[in-house]
Nucleic acid binder design. Structure first.
Lengths: 230, 230
DNA sequence: CGTTACTGTGTCCGGTGGACACAATAACGC
DNA sequence: GCGTTATTGTGTCCACCGGACACAGTAACG
């Protein structure tokens, strides 16, 4: 099962030479997903992009789920290196890098929901995140949970700011705020908290990533400081 | 657009009486999604559940997206009331309630990704979350962002613990840990952070929700305390 | 009682993921 | 050199999907 993403994949000796490559297929899929969203990625279209028939793809990939998995791992890529930083700086940079990855390929938000195949690159991301916390006094489970909180937040902000139904990338949450202000203008009394919050908004928008990240890192600091003392 | 979820929907006077109801259709869809996952929800199957043809559904719902939106709002329901709690207690209870909602209907994790139609119940959830922070010194934007962080975390934990590819509910992250330990056992040196973390795990598992929530609330406390002083 | 608006149904379409048989290809043992 | 054999990409076929549209039946209105 993990073979596709992890195995060496040496070619067989008999038979005609392969006309395509797994990476080339995945790249075609990525190109399609970047341009038209994840929903546009079908076996037909990917094969068409490479001027082959869709069934030929099944010689390289067991099914669509696996194709998307390969695309995902290839698109997420390797995390950047940030040597010589404190755990807080490292984790913060890591979070912004992750957000940038989602920004490059918004469909990653859709392709990484639910249980799925894990690729080496995705695992490397997790590894780097955990490494940032290796020096602190947190135990393994806490390190993993901490990284999970940060990824969750990055996902949430990315999702809210750059996702549209079909998986297409969009400008910025235009539609949601539209219906929201529409509803609030007519039924403000039904949602006192929201309508109150909408009124007392400072000009600073799209600060969601930094805001939440700061809270999370502050909370982690507190825990780590407590550990260091004991 | 928002009419379906918000409008009063009074029936017309002419013509035969309606044999079904929007809510009944949504309930059938929910039943299907609960049992077999969101992918099992098709017009055919929902109509079949009610012993009607699929095209009859289009007399009640413009398309599948809207049906899922109605299902979602109906399934998420109204948040429970928790009067007389501090902002921290209230937001914490709110978070656990939200997690419980995802637990009841795991497919909500899939149906609430990306841009979509917002229903009154979903908006009520947001409103209650914001209300919990109304008393603090945070401004509206900060209140919204704070609730967003919490929802993101709840989603993340729920997603990791009870989602499977098709949208089916699963036991607990069996598959992911399987591949993870499998990979780590053979290539531990490639992922030093992860393999290190896996070794130093305390017995306490599935604490992810509480752990992250505590960090976030700690971070918020810090901010709120700072505001109160100035 | 005819008109009219509305209901649920049947038929049709393009697109999807995938199973399977098929001819062409190229390395192997002899 | 030559059959054998594994492997390639292809073509055909299927069930299913969301949805457009025309249709006959129904029930309130003038």
């Amino acid at each position: 099962m993990t073979e596709l993403l992890w195995g060496p994949r040496q070619p067989p000796s008999r038979g005609p030479k392969r006309a395509m490559s797994l990476e080339g297929i995945a790249q075609a899929g990525i190109k399609l997903a970047d341009a038209e969203g994840l929903d546009a990625v079908s076996m037909q279209r990917v094969a068409g992009e490479l001027s082959f028939t869709k069934m030929s793809l099944y010689r390289y990939v067991p099914g669509k789920a696996e194709l998307v998995a390969v695309m995902t791992d290839l698109a997420v890529g390797q995390p950047a290196e940030h040597p010589g930083l404190s755990w807080r700086e490292a984790l913060s940079a890591w979070a912004y890098d992750l957000y940038a990855a989602f920004e490059r390929h918004p469909w990653l938000l859709l392709s990484t929901v639910g249980r799925r195949l894990l690729g080496p690159n995705e695992l490397t991301w997790m590894d780097r995140g955990v490494q940032a916390l290796a020096g602190t006094g947190l135990n393994g489970g806490e390190q993993l949970d901490s990284v999970l909180v940060v990824t969750g937040h990055v996902r949430t902000i990315a999702q809210q700011s750059l996702t549209m139904p079909g998986g297409t990338t969009g400008v910025i949450e235009e539609h949601i705020t539209a219906t929201l202000t529409d509803v609030l203008s007519t039924q403000a009394d039904r949602f006192p908290g929201l309508s109150g919050a909408m009124q007392s908004i400072d000009g600073n928008q799209n600060q969601g990533l930094t805001f939440g990240l700061t809270r999370i890192l502050d909370g982690l600091s507190l825990l780590i400081a407590g550990r260091a003392k004991s």
